[in-house]
Amino acid sequence: MEILVLLKQVPATESLIAIANDRVSIKPDGLKYVMNPYDELAVEEALRIRESQGGTVTILSVGPAKAAEAIRTGLAMGADKGILIDPGNLTCDGLATAKLLAAAIKPMTYDIIIAGHRAVDDDNFQVATALAELLGIPNISMVVKQTLADGKIRCLCTVEGGTKEVEATLPALIATQRGLNDPRYASLPGIMKAKKKPLETRSIADLGLDAAGLQPLVTIKALKMPVERKGGRVIEGDSVAVKVAALVKALHEEAKVI
C-alpha cells in the first residue's frame, strides 16, 4: 500500500497571535510551530494502514524551509520519507497549494492520500478537495473510521448530528476528522531514526510549474482580532429562588436563549 500524507506546519493553537503591520498577515516572532492537529491524525492513520497492510508512508508538505520540522516530526512518528515543496516568495491560496501538490503527486504511484480536513491556521478547508479534483480521484472528507478491502475504502464520516457510511474505489483521498484515532508520540529512538530518512525539497521550477499559473485567486484584504469577550455577570439575590427567577428572566429576555 503506497500511502501519501499531506501535512501543514501551523502556529501552535496556544500561541498568542498578533496581526502584523501590513494588516494582512500575522507576526511570526515568538510563534511556536507544530504539525496541524488534523494532519497528526492523518500520519497516525497512514502508519496504522502500513502496519496492517505493509507499504510506505510518504509525507508531502507545501511551506517554507522551516516546515521541514513538521515533516521530521512525522518521520520520527514512523513515516518513511518526506517531500517539502517550497514555493519561495509565492503566496499560495488553497488552489495554488493543491496545484503544487498535484504536480508532485502525478508522477508518483499511490493507493491512498490522507489529509487533514482543514488546517487550523487559515481554516480554508480547500486543499484536499481541490487536490482530489485535480488528480481525478474520489474524495471523502470528515472521516472518523476507515476500512480497506478489495481495492476499496469504506469510511464512516461525520455529518451534522450523525454519521454516514460511504465507499470509494482506490486510489482515493480521505480527509481526517477528530475521533479517527489517537496519534502516537514521536518516540526518542524514532527521532534518531528520522535523521537518516530521506527528505527532499522541491521548488516550483522542479515541479515544472511557473509562478504565473499559481497566482492566488483569493487575496486577504484585512485581518481582525476577535472581539474580546466581556466578563461574566453574577446574579445577585437574597435566596436561591430569587436568583433562579432572575437568571431565567435574563436568559429569556436579554440573552433570548430560552
Binding site: R72, T73, A76, Y185, A186, L188, M192, A194
Partner: peptide, 15 residues
C-alpha cells in the same frame, strides 16, 4: 542539534 530540539519538543508535549 535538530534531534535535541525535537527531543525537547516531544518530551515536553508528552509531559
Amino acid at each position: 542539534t535538530r534531534e535535541q530540539e525535537m527531543i525537547r519538543r516531544e518530551v515536553r508535549s508528552f509531559a
